[in-house]
Design a binder for these strands. Structure first.
Lengths: 134, 134
DNA sequence: TCTTGCCTTCAAGTGTACTTGAAGTGTTAG
DNA sequence: CTAACACTTCAAGTACACTTGAAGGCAAGA
């Protein structure tokens, strides 16, 4: 089984080692063994765990919820409904967030077109476009 | 011209009045007149401004950038390139964010399916599904 | 051997975006 | 007229997710 130092993971995931220690304090990384000199030893388990954590983080799940998820994970039979609730809830949140962003993107694109119109009018000396709500 | 109290806007936009004062301190709301008793008077201009601010906020533009935007807005001829750069940049960020969320959504949906499979296996006593990366 | 450098812990600091509290003035209902 | 309530300012506090600093241990190279 492969093992990794804190430096290895820090480089692999492009996070400072302080963050990895912080995740451990927060209960996101568990069962981290130590060398005889008290240095952390990570395994492929931890690599997979960090990939999961990053996926959750990129989708905006707060640390406390990620912690909850792995707590349920470690006692799945008892918490299967909880974990399904958590991930389904998160799925819905992401879908709602995507829909909201797509809606707001239209407004931002409207602004981009508007200011490009203003620039053209400045360059050509023609009358400035008038802002129209939508 | 319509005028509004801090309470009016607070209710209309569902934010505490402290937040409206904070936006003013941060330079997002400008030219707020006062009554003879020093109470803030907002106009339809401020309503439009707040709609703009909220659009930017929902898309994750930080306060400092929003402030910059309205600074450019108030001197458009001199800052037309800056403002086009700012909104175009923001448009690209939103599109990248949507793409990222769509990608990660697939992973979360994979988890939802996986745990539903686990639940079925618990309920029926059949063997548990095995997690497969993708 | 000594210095460089990475490691450890624990506590305190940072940045963003508010939020709350204290102290004081003004307005309104009974 | 007075109590309750709304408003003001300014300063300090909160929440989240780290980030940095202090103090010290261990080990390999000059």
């Amino acid at each position: 089984m492969n093992t990794y130092t804190i430096r290895d993971l820090s480089q692999r995931f492009n996070v400072p080692s302080s963050t990895l220690r912080y995740y451990e304090d927060m209960g996101l990384l568990e069962n981290v063994e130590r060398t005889e000199h008290n240095q952390r030893i990570y395994t492929d388990e931890h690599i997979r765990r960090l990939e999961g954590i990053n996926c959750f983080k990129r989708t905006g799940l707060p640390i406390a919820k990620i912690q909850e998820f792995y707590e349920y994970e470690s006692n799945l039979d008892e918490h299967i409904d909880d974990i399904i609730h958590l991930v389904t809830d998160h799925e819905n949140n992401i879908q709602a967030r995507i829909a909201e962003l797509q809606q707001e993107l239209l407004h931002i694109q409207h602004k981009v077109r508007f200011y490009n119109g203003i620039k053209e009018s400045i360059d050509s000396g023609s009358p400035k476009p008038v802002w129209e709500d939508f």
